[in-house]
Amino acid sequence: MSWRASAFGNWRRRLKVGVLSVLGLIVVVGAGGLAYALYPRTMPQTQSIEIKLQPAEVERLRLASDFAAIADLNERSVALFEEAGRVIQHPRCMNCHPQTDRPTQTDAMRAHVPWVTRGLDGGGASTLRCSTCHGDTNFEPSGVPGNPTWMLAPIEMAWQGKTLGDICRQLLDPTRSHMTREELLRHMTEDELVGWAWHPGANRRPVPGAQAEFGALIKAWLETGAACPP
């Protein structure tokens, strides 16, 4: 009596149930593997391939001066804001102006994954802060975007689900935007987090133009009476 016999005892049962199928499988695997292993193939060697640079498609913003031709001041103001709206209603901006407690992401503006909430200060719940994942800068190895003030806009400043006209009137209402017109201009022209939208990193599509151009549009819009689209 040896251990092997005992350990693999009950021959008939094992033969019936498992052994033959197992052996069959091993034979198949063996034959397949052998054929595959011995199949002759040659491997390519490294060679020089030219870098094909996809010309990056830069979306331009019309400049404030382009609107000077519009004689009617009110009409010009609306046109200026509509041009600025190409930035405002861009997913890069809208994603952090959600109408719920949860940001959205990507150009498709899908709900943020993982599930996160704005918390008391827009910087995330006290137990899962934005800063758990988002650093001071974009981080290329992980693809996670970042900024020193990474946070959500207050819920009163929600843009998603609103028309450009609604957004416009909301911006001008200090009870909702918490900003005077001077502060509004500074937010749009100088705010670093707003500026992120022009340098979003990874394969994210930046907003059109440049922040200075956008700021000039806002400035011109304010100077022309800050008229809103309907």
């Binding site: 949860r102 498709a108 503006m109 899908r110 709900a111 943020h112 994954v113 993982p114 599930w115 909430t117």
Partner: peptide
């Protein structure tokens, strides 16, 4: 589609 996201 867009509904494919974890939810509260």
């Amino acid at each position: 589609g867009n509904a494919r996201s974890n939810t509260d």
